[in-house]
Amino acid sequence: MGTDTAATFEKSLERLNVERTATAATDVHGVLEDVCTTPTVGSSLPFDGVSLPEWVNDTPTPEDLRDAETGISAASIGIADYGSVVLPARPDGSESVSLFPDTHVAVLRMSDIVPGIPEAIARLGDEFRAGNDTAIIATGPSATADMGSLVTGAHGPKEVHVVILDE
């Protein structure tokens, strides 16, 4: 991943009105504290030296999901051209954490940003054949125009924030 790709990714997020914060792994707790509104639920972050802060509920019940304001989950790939994040569905319930609360905070390693769809699909193809087999390519918040004009936050999150780990 070159700096160009990271810059394109940021530009795409800006176009989507998606907030983003780049941070070193050591500062991630501070950043999460700034961008999350409690109650916050989360799914574990599989990155070296990064863990969920203690104030995040990482074993949410359906009741917790209903009440949560923010959900934190890991993104495995960022797609520069589109500002998309790939959200793998993990057995700890990352899918519901990223879907039910009003704000979704996706945590992504800068080195996982790829230029475009073909690169992302090539990488996912290898993962899918290896058995890691469900993911969402998410681009911006959930949206609908079915009620007469564009509204964000139809069934899914109304806001998305991408935290980029600059290793």
Binding site: P91, L124, T134, A138, G140
Partner: peptide, 13 residues
């Protein structure tokens, strides 16, 4: 907004 790539039965609880 979403492209779901599901290989069911999915592992998500």
């Amino acid at each position: 907004s979403y492209l779901s790539l599901l290989t069911p039965p999915v592992e998500s609880p």
